[in-house]
Design a protein around this nucleic acid. Structure first.
Length: 618
RNA sequence: GGACCCGUGGCUCAGCCAGGACAGAGCGAAGGCCUGCGGAGCCUUAGGUCCCGGGUUCAAAUCCCGGCGGGUCCGCCA
């Protein structure tokens, strides 16, 4: 079992200082920080934060080499020899991967794209973040279940099925990627329907509105001709069939209704095509080593009666109201300030009522999501459910928590986390799955792959997929989730310092030094050698357990990413200046080998929990 | 109009939640470093009113209030 040496040292120091000042150890521990500049020391205690200002203070610890008062700070310099000895005598392969004392059961739902078109770079951010959260939490010792919610009973799937019906329910060509193929049919059908709807509207409007709609229709017609080029035969057949259909909207509503009711014929059709698209998703995500434990179909919740039961409970709730002639829940009225705070609902937000049913009696997405959330908590016996969902759904997610609370599931409401992330945009283009306008995950993957192939073409056997994976993951994980990203392929294929491949490359350097050393790495070292970057490396290695805990517990992969970047920079700066294997002095060589070993282990473990493989050559 | 998120060198970001000492990186720019463990590397230099204005504090990029700018949402869509 690896030990967090730095935590041990900080505890010892805070105990000492606490005794001297007559305050609690925990309080001191909490305020210990790292000075901004090296020459100040390795640790600092700001006295005002403790409400004390001692004249002089003795810190007696074998780990502390010296200390000095500087303004309001007590600066401590650690004894690198003691730290080194303690750290490397207990270093093992799992170093830094600190497990929690009380593991929890955590469900992470992520990606959950509509099964009607291929995954695009917006979903990619969701998948990569979700997967990193899964890996971080698992490494921390939690039991994690990964789930994908299949939205198979909405209007969008119905549109796809409607389009397919007009084509006589064709099979995708053998060589085609099935999600891509379905996405084309969906976008064609949708555009044709939208144009038709707009054309109908033109008959009843006039003047400014008329001109606006004409412009909009012209745009759609332009897009239509673009998408027609993907498959002219499909497009022309769809256009003709939909033109001849007296009531497409009725047919689509019919599909939704029959599917919700579990009509065996439509069930078989819908499931077949939805599963084709899911096959495509799995194929794309497997390239990034992303998998799921469960795929949960929205329709199963309808057929099993789980949605009905939620609806019944909602209809008998005291919060039930009539809203615009239909059934709804008033989520605003019955939650006091304290509850809102507990549920992380902004104080100033007027929560919109939750509409429960359409006038034809069918249920809406959020109602089904209530049922799904309950299912996630119950079937996995989860302590916490994390939904990785775009920021656009902030309000619906709030409605969800509020509704759970009101319907008698306050614990679930409190333990449901919306892990929000901001949009991914493309330079000079807005994406729209509805209109078939997007850059798919597969395209991004291929572009990055080409760049990697170009870069490695003279290097023999190299694990190209793992380099592509690291470049993509790093690009999406190094930016905090709540920042919007403009996805720039040029940047992702730049494998210089700020990149996943840079980290992998650093690992390769460390690994190769170790692989060329045939002896035994011992602790018979020269502590005097621990200066400059080597001392910095020692400190950095010592900080890894704390950084990992921080990153995992706060669900912030970017914290770990920045740390690994710093470690790599420090290692590379040293690597260029001094030799390890060629060092003549045996004890110095041994000092350095230990440090390289430390970097190797930390880099490998750190990358692993981000879903990035450490390669031994590249 | 209301709510939420974002605003840090020319560009892209870290640091903000848990306030602390002259604000860190990368890209781009200028100039250097390959007889040595893999140059996807290293070393210099230039470049910053941390959006603005108040407030709290011994201490504010960080917390609070008010603005400004950008994004997102406010549907019997999901």
């Amino acid at each position: 079992m690896a030990v967090d040496i730095l935590a041990k040292i900080k505890q010892e120091i805070s105990y000492q200082v606490g005794q001297e000042l007559g305050i609690g150890q925990d309080l001191v521990y909490k305020v210990i920080e790292y000075p901004p500049r090296e020459e100040m020391g390795d640790l600092a205690i700001p006295f005002p934060a403790l409400g004390k200002k001692p004249q002089n203070l003795e810190v007696k610890s074998r780990f502390v080499k010296s200390h000095s008062l500087s303004g309001p700070f007590l600066n401590l310099k650690l004894d690198e020899a003691q730290l080194f000895k303690e750290l490397f005598s207990s270093l093992d392969q799992d170093y830094g991967i600190e497990r929690v004392e009380k593991p929890r059961r955590i469900v992470v739902e992520h990606t959950s794209a509509n099964p009607i078109h291929p995954l695009h770079i917006g979903h990619l951010r969701n998948s990569v973040i979700g997967d990193a959260l899964v890996r971080l939490s698992k490494a921390r010792g939690h039991e994690v279940i990964t789930r994908f919610y299949v939205n198979d009973s909405g209007r969008q799937v119905a549109i796809l099925i409607y389009g397919l019906s007009k084509l006589g329910y064709p099979e995708p060509p053998k060589e085609a990627k099935k999600d891509l193929w379905a996405g084309t049919v969906y976008a064609m059908t949708n555009i044709i329907l939208e144009i038709r709807a707009l054309t109908d509207e033109l008959k009843t409007v006039q003047d400014a509105e008329y001109r606006e709609k004409v412009t909009k229709r012209d745009e759609l017609v332009g897009l239509a001709s673009e998408i027609r080029s993907r498959n002219q035969e499909y497009f022309d057949r769809l256009a003709e069939a939909i033109r001849d259909d007296p009531d497409p909207e009725g047919k689509i509503a019919d599909i939704i209704r029959k599917y919700e009711a579990g009509d065996p014929q439509i069930k078989e059709i819908v499931r077949k095509y939805v599963n084709y698209v899911l096959d495509g998703f799995r194929e794309s995500l497997s390239k990034l080593n992303i998998t799921f434990d469960e795929f949960d179909y929205e329709s199963d919740l309808l057929w099993s009666g789980e949605v009905k039961s939620v609806l019944r409970s909602a209809l008998s709730s005291r919060a039930r109201i009539e809203h615009k002639g239909t059934e709804a829940l008033d989520l605003d009225k019955y939650l006091d300030d304290e509850v809102r705070k507990e549920l992380r609902i902004p104080a100033g937000l007027e929560i919109p009522p939750l509409v429960l049913t359409r006038s034809d009696g069918t249920t809406l997405y959020t109602v089904r999501d209530i049922a799904y959330t309950i299912k996630k908590f119950l079937t996995s016996k989860a302590d916490q459910v994390i939904n990785v969902i775009a920021e656009q759904q902030t309000v619906p997610q709030i409605q969800l928590r509020a509704a759970l609370y009101l319907l008698g599931y306050p614990e679930m409401a409190k333990n449901l986390v919306h892990y929000s992330y901001s949009m991914v945009t493309l330079p000079g283009m807005t994406m729209s799955g509805r209109l078939g306008r997007y850059v798919s995950l597969d395209e991004v993957y291929e572009k990055v792959k080409q760049a990697v192939e170009e870069k490695t073409k003279d290097r023999g056997q190299v694990n190209i997929p793992e380099i592509v994976n690291s470049a993509i993951r790093y690009a999406l994980l190094s930016v905090s989730a709540d920042k919007p990203i403009t996805f720039n392929v040029g940047k992702v294929t730049n494998f210089e310092q700020n990149s996943g491949p840079y980290l992998q490359y650093t690992y390769v350097r460390a690994y190769n030094i170790l692989s060329k050393f045939t002896g035994e790495i011992s602790l018979d070292v020269d502590y005097g050698d621990l200066a400059g970057e080597k001392r910095r490396l020692l400190l950095a290695i010592a900080k890894f357990p704390e950084t990992f805990k921080n990153s995992a517990d706060s669900l912030e992969p970017e914290v770990l990413v920045s740390y690994l970047r710093y470690l790599a920079d420090t290692f590379n700066a040293w690597y260029d200046k001094e030799r390890v294997l060629q060092e003549q002095d045996e004890k110095k060589r041994m000092t350095r080998l230990n440090l390289v070993k430390g970097v190797e282990i930390v880099m490998r473990n750190g990358l692993r929990v981000l879903g990035i493989s450490s390669l031994t050559k590249m």
